[in-house]
């Protein structure tokens, strides 16, 4: 029973971070219909930024907001310089441009930081929190709590602010939004900024738990694909729910089957979901028509 609870809690905590990680991907898709294949590389960027801020003496969790805004800026610039042009182009071009970005970022990281593993190790890095017989790493708990706060803030931003309302309106119907005077270009830029910001923030929260290296992004891209396809590409609550499901799958299959089995489990589930229910568990209307033939 203790083991079950331990796994359940670890899974949910990990899932919370995965939720934030995938929120950015699903938000960008919901508004711009672009699946960002460089999403994981922006997580990597967040991790490197956290590492260097930590080296400068910042606590990694205090660095997290800084990383968010830095990545927000990177996101806005990237969308303005590159992705803005692809909005009316075929999917193939959109996917390839984001793939190109991921190749460039990976190669850039390799050139700047070599392929060494970097670790962020604050003094409390190995601390464990004990609740009864359950022991959980402090860093994972903090990461999950901050991820949930981040997720909540993004939701508040979308629900309560004028820009947020414009983003939601654009996701529903870009033409109508344009007609009522919403500046679509700004909406796309901000959306991409927030999306990349979330990826970077997730990177900051993961940095004290996992090492960072130039090719780390692929794993995070894949996890976020699995999460958003499970939750429904374009659905914001779906990202969190999908994240929790994937977090649980990962911890349980790693314990009960084998540590190697966790990835196999979620890719199998990913393929099954795509085949049976391309719109995901909480699918966005329209993503299904994109998923299957429309």
């Amino acid at each position: 029973m203790d083991i079950f609870l331990q796994l359940l809690l670890s899974g949910l905590l990990l899932g919370g971070v995965y939720g934030l990680l995938s929120l950015g991907l699903t938000l960008v898709f919901g508004v711009t219909r672009i699946v960002n294949f460089a999403h994981g590389e922006f997580v990597m960027l967040g991790m490197y930024l956290t590492y260097f801020l930590w080296q400068l003496g910042f606590d990694p969790y205090l660095a997290a907001p800084v990383v968010f805004f830095a990545c927000f800026a990177v996101g806005v610039v990237t969308q303005h310089l590159l992705l803005r042009k692809t909005l009316t182009m075929p999917h193939l071009v959109q996917v390839f441009v984001t793939l190109g970005i991921s190749v460039v970022m990976q190669a850039g990281a390799q050139l700047l930081f070599t392929s060494n593993f970097y670790f962020v190790r604050p003094s409390y890095g190995n601390a464990m929190v004990e609740i009864g017989n359950i022991r959980l790493p402090l860093t994972t708990i903090i990461a999950a709590v901050l991820a949930l706060i981040g997720t909540a803030l993004v939701h508040l931003f979308l629900k309560k602010t004028h820009t947020g309302a414009a983003i939601r309106a654009t996701a529903q119907d870009p033409y109508a939004a344009n007609v009522v005077g919403i500046e679509i270009k700004t909406v796309y830029a901000v959306t991409f900024g927030v999306g990349i910001g979330c990826a970077g923030l997730a990177g900051a929260l993961l940095a004290p738990i996992y090492p960072v290296y130039p090719t780390v992004g692929l794993a995070y891209s894949l996890i976020s694909f699995v999460v958003v396809v499970l939750g429904g590409l374009g659905s914001l609550p779906g990202a969190l729910i999908g994240g929790l499901v994937v977090g649980l799958l990962e911890t349980f299959s790693a314990y009960y089957i084998s540590p190697e089995a966790k990835e196999a489990t979620y890719f199998t589930i990913f393929i099954i979901v795509l085949l049976l229910r391309p719109a995901g568990l909480l699918g966005l209307r329209g993503s299904e028509t994109m998923g299957a033939n429309h």
Partner: peptide
């Protein structure tokens, strides 16, 4: 599956 969905599935398949 269309466009990006097909792309994601092929990536997942390779990983598998």
């Amino acid at each position: 599956l269309r466009g990006p969905f097909f792309a994601m599935t092929t990536v997942a398949f390779t990983e598998l």
